[in-house]
Write a protein that binds this DNA or RNA. Structure first.
Lengths: 200, 200, 200, 200
DNA sequence: GATGAATGAGTTTTCATTCAT
DNA sequence: CATGAATGAAAACTCATTCAT
């Protein structure tokens, strides 16, 4: 989207993205200074603007970059054989493991990304929707196979699943990562699966 | 009686709070202009600073004001007789009805309140914790009465309950209130209660 | 055009205009710093923006302010009785005397005002056109009375009259005002009147 | 032969000059981007700096280049036999024809060249003075031959002649070249010659 | 000579907050 | 209490220029 097509593979592009995630995570979007991101990436301020249209584009690009990687990995694991319940467990595991292993990334995702700026929302919506569809796919599969209750509102259930996991991550972040996030995966999956299937 | 308590009951204090919620909801915290809040409240800019320390204090105060009212109402309803499951239903109903009836308030709560500023977080934490304890109380009650599964992680379950409801509200807000939020209450409660109790 | 209607009569409005003319004259539009104008006017930087939309508006406003005053005075003198030749002499006298008495203003007018910015041109065009019409009026009057040659191209002649005077001023400014500008008035008028009337 | 003279005859030198005139004409000096000039010339940004010290030098060089060519041509035509009046007509014709045939060049000369930068003024002064001397030469010749009035202030008259022609060109440029500029030559010459000679 | 990625100084404008009235 | 004119710090972004290749 920015400049030459292979810019995205340059070392500087990646360095700036990583630096941005750190600085956004530490200060939040509005209090993050572009010059600080540049310094953290080891480049000059102007260089940031060779790779990104503006600060907003940097935020959105950083999110997409990470989110797309994550969604891709989850999609891969969900394509492997297994029942819907098993797949939901995988998804929860990956979600909590992925963020639980990278506090800064979790901070970036949970706390600071929710900006009211139109462009931010628009740039973020796509990758988030792809993840949402992944969850909905599992729900559908479970309803079709009889593993989950029939007649669930797919979209609503997806929202609740995502919201529940998301809030668990947020609390872990607010607790400054003092306990193991992946360690919660079992209890989270169990709760959600009961909600979906009803059996204890 | 000193000045402070009186001040909070003055018409201007209330007018500024309401104006702030509107403007914060429309523009987000960082893009909300104090002068716009003042005008919406029908006062001069300087007057805002007679009632609030600064913009941050205004955000926090607006949140506390609304949240405390809401938490108080929920606490009242939960004190009325009924089983834990019934109480959870009441809580979900009130949460969705309260925000579903006031789109601006929902916007304010869901989208724009999550600022990384230390003071914002600190000022908000208290009222949120009180609501969290309310939910945990229902969970405890249900475990004690046998309505809910024994051995649930109270805090974790509370996070998931809150996260699920919260995300449902967020989606409604993002959909610009195009459907009935209270209309989701039944499905939400049912899902959560299955998660808590396991029965279908 | 800016803020309250009576802002234009405030002391600060006038002080900023005068300071702007000085700083624009010294540095040119693009090299003039708003902070320097503010300091020269004895106000804070932000105050400039209470009275003017932006730097461009400040340039245009300063020009209009001075030009309208000048054009008004010329119009007044031209309304007094006298033949067309006499009126042209008045106009030349006033033009050279007005700028010859205020080197800074002349510098501002001659050197630095001709900016390619659209808005600058647009804002300046009106007052300049009014002055042009004044000159054309004299030419018409002279043709009607038989003082000037019949069949002159009114617009073209006006351009040449203005251009000739203007260039005389420019040269005086480039010579840093080392000689008397009004002292040139007689020779200038004589040349122009010969051009208009043909007699020696 | 050293490097410099060769450089001025290189294709790239010429290409950059032509590109600069176009871009300066379109955007003005301060809004002209070096990268745009480079691209228009079909070279890299850095290459511009192999041929010109800086942006200012590029402006001045472009002006000198064109102005010297023009002055040379005018000087040649004025060296041909003829009276002073005839020579003034030639000069006016060439001035209006030269710019009237190249709108971009006219735009460059009339609107955008008058920058307050010291170095710009200094670099431009020489070529302009040479043209001025040409005009003054014609005036002198006419006074000597009795064609023009005796006792004219040579410098002042030169300023008025140049100013008149210049303003006619400026108006044509502002009118975006909508009429024929050379078509004005007769009326312009006639006006100026009356001013110089007084006869009708 | 030629390139173009990288640099980083520089400036307008905004807006939370103050304080004289 | 209330006002709103005044303040001035702060930061994103641009772009002329450089220099390693």
């Amino acid at each position: 989207m920015n400049g030459a097509p292979d810019r995205k593979n340059s070392d500087k592009y990646r360095a700036i993205i990583e630096a941005a995630i750190e600085v956004f995570a530490e200060h939040g979007y509005h209090n993050a200074r572009v010059v600080k991101i540049a310094r953290a990436a080891g480049v000059a301020e102007g260089t940031v603007y060779l790779y990104f249209r503006n600060k907003e584009d940097l935020l959105v690009s950083a999110f997409r970059e990470k989110m797309e990687t994550f969604t891709g990995e989850v999609a891969g694991r969900l394509a492997e054989p297994g029942g819907a319940a098993e797949k939901l467990r995988r998804l929860v595991d990956m979600h909590l493991a992925g963020l639980g292993a990278d506090f800064t990334l979790a901070l970036f995702f949970q706390i600071h990304l929710r900006q009211p700026e139109e462009a931010v929302h628009d740039g973020i919506a796509g990758p988030l929707a792809r993840y949402a569809r992944l969850i909905e796919g599992v729900v559908e599969e479970g309803m079709a196979s009889g593993e989950f209750l029939p007649g669930l509102n797919k979209k609503l259930v997806r929202q609740m699943i995502f919201g529940a996991i998301d809030e668990v991550v947020s609390n872990w972040v607010h607790a400054r990562g003092k306990y193991s996030l992946p360690g919660q995966a079992g209890a989270v999956s169990a709760f959600l699966l009961r909600g979906l299937a009803g059996t204890r």
